[in-house]
């Protein structure tokens, strides 16, 4: 006997993500899902970004890690509302799923926020697969990784709406070819906007921050 099913395995996550999307729309908050491999400088980029955005753009951050609340402590210093998720309690997951985002978002005063940034768990594979109800996805690649990362992890760069190439202050000391890295990103995702910056020296920060401000403003 054959039973025909034709059901998407991630359907439960997708409907949860849709529920989140409705909630965020209702509260008028723009949600950005920020993803990268571990150590690309997501938290540092966010800290410097928040220093420029706050307090004009009221920002909240949900930060995911398997363990520790080190990132939350760094981000809280900027004055943003921060919720740390440790997936250790949920089985040491490799990504943030939509139900975890809902759980955290409901503890925040969403009415008071213009922007909610989700700093996903450092991983270039799994987070790309999980919709969390965000308005846009950003991927951060740093120049200490390889130029060919976009070709190795195509889904991440395919689903991203924008990319950041971080740590460009280190370029003089590395063999990393920034043009090739950007070219690889655009092979996988033609037309992908790429912001080349250094969170440390703050070179190149403004176009990225302007993109965020603009996205929040468009959201109304």
């Amino acid at each position: 006997m054959e039973i025909n099913i034709q059901k998407r395995v991630l359907e439960a996550n997708e409907s949860m993500a849709d529920k989140n999307r409705r909630l965020f729309r209702e509260k008028g908050v723009f949600v950005l899902n920020m993803m990268s491999s571990p150590g690309s400088g997501k938290t540092e980029t966010l800290c410097k970004t928040l220093q420029r955005l706050m307090p004009e753009v009221a920002t909240g951050v949900i930060v995911g890690d398997i363990c520790t609340r080190n990132d939350a402590d760094r981000l809280e210093a900027t004055g943003a509302a921060v919720v740390q998720i440790n997936t250790d309690e949920f089985g040491g997951d490799c990504h943030l799923a939509a139900h975890l985002i809902e759980k955290s978002a409901l503890t925040m005063d969403l009415e008071a926020l213009d922007l909610l940034i989700v700093e996903n768990i450092g991983n270039l594979v799994c987070p790309a697969e999980f919709d969390i109800g965000e308005n846009a996805k950003a991927v951060v690649l740093s120049v200490t990784e390889g130029e060919d990362k976009p070709l190795k992890y195509p889904l991440m760069f395919q689903v991203a709406d924008i990319a950041i190439l971080n740590k460009i202050d280190l370029l003089p000391y590395l063999d990393f070819n920034a043009a090739e890295a950007v070219d690889n990103m655009k092979k996988v995702h033609p037309g992908l906007p790429v912001f080349e910056l250094s969170a440390k020296t703050q070179e190149g920060m403004e176009p990225w921050v302007a993109w965020l401000r603009d996205s929040v403003a468009k959201k109304g």
């Binding site: 006997m1 054959e2 039973i3 025909n4 099913i5 034709q6 059901k7 998407r8 395995v9 991630l10 697969e129 889904l155």
Partner: peptide
């Protein structure tokens, strides 16, 4: 990007 359960085959 599919990830779907298409069907099941049960023993008679």
């Amino acid at each position: 990007r599919e990830l779907e359960v298409a069907s099941l085959e049960l023993a008679d």
